[in-house]
Design a protein around this nucleic acid. Structure first.
Length: 859
RNA sequence: GCCCGCUUGAUGGAAUUGGUAGACAUAACGGACUUAAAAUCCGUAGCCCGGGAACGGGCGUGCCGGUUCGACUCCGGCAGCGGGCACCA
């Protein structure tokens, strides 16, 4: 064997070998158990980044590990190829989105190649191709038939200069990112998918997703936001109609002092028509963006309308109606009643507009009059539990009972009813953008909305478009949108909106099961076999939207007969971000790590020699220039070192800090692994099998540790604890180096230990593992070698060390046989001199013995 | 504003049903090898106090409090940092 390991040569060699052998192609007919390993597919931005390297390395380890364990593994890759950045590139650089995207896919695929991922590339898909998106057009038509898709108006961010709808991320401080002009909120007719039809099921089924991180389940739980409450109908003074309000606190109705409606509420619109001051007020509110954060943090503002309403329990009691900027048309009924004493937002509003504050709940043990007086004088609302006061028929009831009583009374008076409300809103899928899947409908002046007949699918996205005029290029296209109505044959227009790109990512995992099917989205038998995905891996940023939409989509597809299950992802893992220290010049400009020299005392800018300020570690981003190029890293250290560093130290669900010394350390370990074979402490190459060989001393310990490591690493990999798996493999390496050639059986033990190490590390650093495996005389590659199994006989522990504590403080240890009798252990512990001196001659009051663990003596 | 997560040596982290805190690394220091350096190998190390040393004692997992024979781990409160909030993907 060569003295040094040449990673460039070896990595290329094995990648070529795997490709030539088709080592990672999925078996279509197999009696092995299946395992579907999927990483969230990338957006083809042009270059891979370290976040990709981490994501795909994590998945690759699992895929290789499961394959070695005898599973038929599906590990595919594709491209989430529609989206806004392609259009931005078109506007900025004049490149067509299609060309830009396809070129990016090609370069990124090239960049993935040297990582040595065990991907079945024959299943590659790109969502921007008609072969892919035609199927989702069909799905949409099926959803339409099933009543799962419908049209209604909703709010968007509108840039008055660009004549475009802006994404929330394109709104900066309330202004359009390119135009710099204040953004308006506008209502637009759009397509929606009825995710709320599954709200209860999506919520309940979270409990069944036991292999998901708790925090993702909690986030989805909160997102769906089920709350029980009541709809209350307030009579409007001087009118026949009623104001419908949703509340979770009907028990506080006697504390009401106003009602507030959204500015998009029909009543608000009605008044705005003849009230310029209200129009101005609404315009001011519209200057705030559409995001929840923007609305919640904006100052609470209201406008007193001409309307008043009557209290449901006392028609002589009139309440003023305000238009308020914190009431959302999308939630509940777009109207609330305000009880300032028991809701902080209402309290703030009441103080601002000088409205009454009346306490109607007090803690059970409080002095009611004093409590109410303080509450009504202060600015802090009381939202805690308590008993109803000054509330007529509810007096003395606890909050829960009072709610029930209020609802009963409302129902008997026909002034309201109990109801369940979800925070979850229907999914708006229309986007006024070019680079997306066309929505397959036609607007006919005579027939209304007409679905494109299925035999006319796909509705192809035209490529001859111009980005010179503001607005959606599809709407500006001279001919594309003009068609004849499929029903009446008269001139009609195509829908020019395209789908939200979450549409494509909501079913791609199913397409991978049968990616070349051109007659249907996927074959039923194929998805029945492969789905659900056994292990899905991606960023926590997708915790809610992508994952919730996919869960909904699977249910919707199920109800349209596409597949037979509700949950697409059995196991979910959310990895942390890749971070790096940041650097700035004295002038405050960001610097790339490569532009900074840190070898001296302080950091200096290489080009100028001037000092550099070190900033904290943050997620790698182009804007802060704290990025490291994966291609450069692989070129310098090799894919195995990069992969190993990604897996060492940081638990995969936490943020990983990229450091020079970290990748250096990984590189050194790769070299060390080679030396363990090329320059071994024990000459082992001539050694045969271990069976029947007598083992002593370090040789025996090496074999024992090898078996322990098999057991531990197998468990760690199954639970994605890669960092501890690496630590245990390093321990085994240290033990190999410490094996003494003079101990009986050392050559056989060393060979066994080394081969075990190589087989266990192979999923993480596959290239060097193959190289060492081959060099030690194996003809079959590791990709075709079974996962090692630990011999239980070697895992049996005979003696243990027990901690001995006096009053909870460690005072010594004792050695004892496993399962030793408690009395014996107690005697042994009490015999320790340190124990005696710490007891100071007193007899112990109590002795706690936990067999095999600890003896605690209470003195 | 609401929701979620994180906080352990100089640094990343380990300790996974409450039972010896600091595994494994990184950086550092000392030594070996070398003309020298790199690489490699061996060794030291949570902090404080006492001791020549073996060793002994105290403190210690963001902060305050609680439960327990025993708490990084469970409970209550607080602080700091980070993330998400429906048209970025």
């Amino acid at each position: 064997m060569d003295e040094r390991y040449n990673f460039r040569e070896s990595e290329r060699k094995w990648q070529t070998y795997w490709t030539d052998q088709g080592a990672f192609s999925t078996e279509t007919a197999s009696d092995k158990p299946k395992c579907y390993v999927l990483e969230m597919f990338p957006y083809p931005s042009g270059r891979i980044h370290m976040g990709h390297v981490r994501n795909y390395t994590l998945g690759d380890v699992i895929a290789r590990f499961r394959r070695a364990q005898g599973f038929n593994v599906l590990h595919p890759m594709g491209w989430d190829a529609f989206g806004l950045p392609a259009e931005n590139a078109a506007i900025q650089n004049g490149v067509h989105p299609a060309k830009w995207t396809r070129e990016n896919i090609r370069t990124m695929k090239e960049q993935f190649q040297p990582l040595g991922l065990s991907i079945d590339w024959s299943r590659e898909v790109a969502t921007c191709e008609p072969e892919y998106y035609r199927h989702e057009q069909k799905m949409f038509l099926d959803f339409l038939k099933a009543g799962l898709a419908y049209r209604k108006t909703s709010m968007v961010n509108w840039d008055p200069v660009e004549h475009t709808v802006l994404a929330n991320e394109q709104v900066i401080d309330g202004k359009g990112w390119r135009s710099g002009e204040p953004v308006e909120r506008r209502e637009l007719a759009q397509w929606f998918l009825k995710i709320t039809a599954f709200a209860d099921d999506l919520l309940k089924a979270l409990e069944t997703l036991t292999e998901w991180p708790d925090r993702v389940r909690v986030m989805q739980h909160n997102w769906i936001g089920r709350s029980e409450g009541a709809r209350v109908w307030f009579d409007i003074v001087g009118r026949e109609d009623k104001l419908e309000v949703f509340t979770t606190r009907p028990d506080t109705l006697f504390g009401a002092s106003f009602c507030a409606i959204s500015m998009n509420h029909p009543l608000a619109k009605e008044q705005a028509e003849k009230d310029p001051a209200l129009r101005d007020f609404i315009a001011a509110c519209n200057a705030v963006g559409t995001s929840e954060a923007a609305i919640e943090t904006a100052e609470k503002m209201g406008y007193r309308t001409a309307f008043s309403v009557r209290h449901p329990f006392d028609p002589s009691w009139e309440l003023p109606v305000y238009v308020a900027n914190f009431v959302l048309m999308e939630y509940g009924t777009g109207a609330i009643f305000g009880c300032p004493a028991h809701d902080q937002r209402d309290m703030d509003f009441a103080r601002k507009y000088d409205l009454p504050v009346k306490a109607v709940v007090a803690p059970a043990d409080a002095d009611v009059e004093a409590f109410a007086k303080t509450l009504e004088a202060g600015n802090e609302a009381f939202s805690g539990d308590g008993l109803a006061i000054r509330s007529d028929f509810m007096n003395g009831l606890a909050v829960t009972e009072a709610k029930r009583a209020a609802i009963e009374r409302l129902e008997s008076l026909s002034r309201g009813r109990g109801t369940v409300q979800f925070r979850l809103r229907d999914w708006g899928v229309s986007r006024q953008r070019y680079w997306g899947c066309p929505i397959p409908v036609i607007h006919c002046p005579h027939c209304g909305v007409v679905p494109v007949p299925e035999d006319q699918l796909p509705v192809r996205l035209p490529e001859d478009v111009s980005f010179d005029t503001p607005g959606n290029p599809l709407a500006n296209h001279p001919t594309w949108k003009n068609v004849t109505c499929p029903v009446c044959g008269k001139p009609a227009q195509r829908e020019t909106d395209t789908f939200d790109t979450f549409f494509e990512s909501s079913w791609y995992f199913a397409r991978f099961c049968d990616p070349k099917n051109d007659t249907e989205a996927f074959n039923r038998a194929a998805v029945d076999y492969w789905l659900p995905v056994d292990q899905y891996i991606g960023g926590i940023e997708h915790a809610v939207l992508h994952l919730l939409y996919s869960r909904f989509f699977t249910r919707a597809l199920q109800s349209c007969g596409y597949l037979g299950m509700a949950e697409p992802f059995k196991g979910l893992f959310t990895q942390g971000m890749v971070c790096h220290e940041t650097y700035r010049t004295e002038g405050g400009a960001w610097l790339y790590p490569a532009e900074v020299d840190k070898t001296g005392d302080g950091a200096i800018e290489i080009a100028s020699g001037k000092p550099v300020t070190l900033g904290r570690s943050e997620k790698m981003s182009k804007s802060k220039k704290n990025t490291v190029d994966p291609g450069h890293i692989i070129e310098t250290y090799g894919a195995d070192a990069a992969r190993l560093f990604m897996l060492s130290d940081s638990p995969p669900d936490r943020d990983l800090e990229w450091t020079e010394s970290g990748i250096d350390g990984a590189w050194r370990y790769i070299q060390r692994l080679w030396r363990l074979a090329a320059q071994p402490a024990v000459p082992f190459l001539e050694a045969g099998a271990l069976s029947g060989v007598a083992l002593e001393g370090s040789a025996k310990e090496t074999v024992a540790m090898a078996h322990r490591t098999i057991a531990a690493v197998t468990e760690d990999l199954a639970k994605l604890r890669f960092n501890t798996a690496v630590a245990k493999l390093r321990e085994l390496s240290n033990q190999l180096a410490a094996t003494k050639a003079s101990d009986k059986g050392a050559p056989e033990a060393y060979r066994f230990g080394l081969e075990t190490l190589i087989r266990l590390i192979a999923p993480m650093t596959p290239h060097i593992a193959e190289e060492v495996w081959q060099a030690t005389g194996h003809g079959t590659p590791l990709t075709a070698t079974d996962w090692p199994l630990a011999d239980p006989a070697w895992l049996v522990v005979e003696t243990v060390t027990l901690a001995v504590q006096v009053n909870g403080k460690l005072r010594g240890t004792i050695e004892a046989a496993v399962g030793a009798d408690a009395k014996e252990l107690e005697a042994q512990a009490l015999a320790l001199p340190t124990v005696q001196s710490n007891l100071g001659g007193r007899a112990p009051k109590k002795v706690i013995v936990v067999p095999n663990k600890i003896v605690n003596i209470v003195g």
